[in-house]
Write a protein that binds this DNA or RNA. Structure first.
Lengths: 191, 191
DNA sequence: ATATTTACTTACTAGTAAGTAAGCAAACAT
DNA sequence: ATGTTTGCTTACTTACTAGTAAGTAAATAT
């Protein structure tokens, strides 16, 4: 008998991968159960509905993001933090061209159960808040160069990263690296 | 008896809206037929499979894009062209927070039939090619300011626009306008 | 006037989706 | 040793999916 947390974590791992590859509406309990070698109903034992599963997947992603940025709280320089953040997206690219959960949630938004929408908003807000602070701090310290409100630049940068993974799927992975290079170039360009 | 082209066009109109709102896997023949007041099988008469329908939706979008940019071939200035291009996205935002077909195709990419993938690639490539030329021309004429290869900047800009519609869904429409403002600000920032 | 094509509808199939109820063996608690 | 909880499986339901085959009334062609 596997321990509760083991199976639950394995379900989340597989479901997260499927969600990022296939989208919210195209992945199913059957995909998960067949990959895990258990039965469909076993997933319902841990996640009564797909809504619970979907919300938990995004929640876990949020927690991972918190853990990441908390490690940087004390004196990691701006460019290193930006690179660390970009690395998350690059890892998704390398892991079977996964797309970030915000893109997945957004494109299926009007079919999502309430709690999944809510988690998606929390994730997006937390990323934007953090990125805004990073950009503002970096601009003050002279590390980053851009005009306009920092939260505009944060939204533009985040949406560019989100879009980069999507464009990479359709047009080829090199487009991801081109976009990263451009984001960095733009932040280096002094006025 | 409705004429062939009337019904076919109406199917495409409704299906396109559903695809942009719900995603490729969440919209169904039943959604279309009930909205149109016809039967499910009538759609199969015009579009034997969902693959045909999906591919035709994207193809029509490509043709619309061609028609748009062809009107600009003779001496419309760079900023007017960029504004015209952005307006397409803004129209999607206003029409029930539709997301662009590239985002829809990307997030469901690994569930898409071959011909739909192919059309998505064609659409994305054509947009990137056009935008690259516009940015390069604008940089030479001194209208746009940016560093690095024009096709890098085109990819970054296009992915930012694609992402903007998605972020708007989750976080609120104001984010779309912030991103547009930032894209324009960045292109005005001289070195 | 007759034959054929067009634009559908009716009625169906096979597959898959999420979700549930009941049972059962192993682990654990007392 | 006994009872209870845990972690599942078996077996099922309801709903919906794309897709098909056969039929039909109106429009068109000859």
């Amino acid at each position: 008998m596997a321990s509760r947390s083991d199976t639950k974590t394995r379900i989340l791992d597989i479901a997260e991968g499927l969600m990022q590859r296939l989208g919210y509406n195209a992945f199913s309990y059957q995909h998960i159960s067949s990959q895990l070698g258990i039965k469909n109903a076993a997933i319902h034992y841990y996640f009564p509905s797909k809504e619970h599963l979907g919300a938990d997947i995004i929640r876990r992603n949020r927690e991972r993001f918190h853990a990441l940025v908390n490690r940087w709280q004390t004196g990691v320089d701006c460019w290193a933090q930006l690179d660390g953040f970009i690395e998350v997206y690059q890892t998704n690219l390398h892991e079977d061209n996964k797309v970030c959960l915000i893109a997945i949630a957004a494109s299926a938004y009007y079919t999502l159960p309430a709690s999944v929408k809510k988690e998606a908003l929390a994730l997006a807000s937390e990323i934007l808040t953090w990125l805004t602070k990073l950009l503002e701090t970096g601009r003050i310290s002279g590390d980053f160069h851009f005009e306009g409100p920092a939260h505009y630049k944060a939204a533009a940068t985040a949406s560019s990263l989100t879009g980069a993974l999507q464009l990479a799927r359709i047009c080829g992975n090199e487009h991801f690296y081109h976009i990263i290079a451009q984001i960095k170039t733009d932040l280096k360009t002094s006025i």
